Simulated assay, not measured.
Amino acid sequence: MGDFSETFPMDLSYWGVDDYRAGWVRALRRVDAGRDEVDSCLVTSITDPATANFVFCWPLYRRGTDVYVQNAVVFLGELADAFRPTEPWLSVEPRGTVDEDGNEISEWRTTIDEVRAFLSAHP
Rank of each mutant, 00 (worst) to 15 (best):
G96V: 10
D81H: 14
T65N: 13
F75L: 09
T97N: 10
W108P: 00
D99Y: 07
W89S: 10
T97R: 12
Y68S: 10
G96M: 06
P88L: 11
V74P: 02
N103R: 13
A72L: 11
N103T: 02
V98L: 10
G102L: 10
G77L: 04
V98C: 05
N103Y: 05
P94S: 13
G102H: 01
V92M: 15
V74E: 05
E100R: 12
G64K: 07
W108A: 01
V74T: 11
R84T: 11
T97G: 06
N71Q: 07
T97W: 00
S106L: 07
R62W: 00
Q70Y: 01
N103M: 08
D66L: 06
G77F: 09
L79I: 04
F75H: 09
A72S: 15
P85K: 05
V98G: 06
L79V: 04
E107Y: 06
E100P: 03
F83Y: 15
P85R: 03
A82F: 02
E107R: 14
R95D: 01
T65C: 04
S91C: 08
V67A: 12
Y68N: 10
V98D: 06
L79W: 01
E100M: 08
A72H: 15
G64I: 06
E100F: 14
N103I: 00
P88F: 11
V67T: 07
R63C: 03
T86F: 02
W108H: 00
D101S: 14
A72F: 14
P94V: 11
V92W: 14
E104S: 03
I105L: 12
F83E: 13
N71K: 08
V92S: 15
N103W: 03
Q70R: 07
N103H: 10
S91Y: 03
N71C: 00
E93T: 12
L76V: 06
V73W: 04
V74I: 15
Y68L: 15
F83Q: 11
E93V: 07
L90A: 13
R63N: 08
V98P: 03
P88S: 06
L90R: 15
N71T: 06
N71S: 11
S91V: 02
A82Q: 12
N103L: 06
A72M: 14
P85Y: 03
D66E: 08
S106T: 09
S91Q: 03
A82R: 13
I105Q: 02
E93H: 14
E87F: 13
F75I: 07
W108N: 00
E100L: 09
V98F: 01
D99H: 08
A72Q: 15
G96A: 14
E100I: 12
W89D: 13
E78M: 12
E104T: 11
V98E: 14
T97M: 06
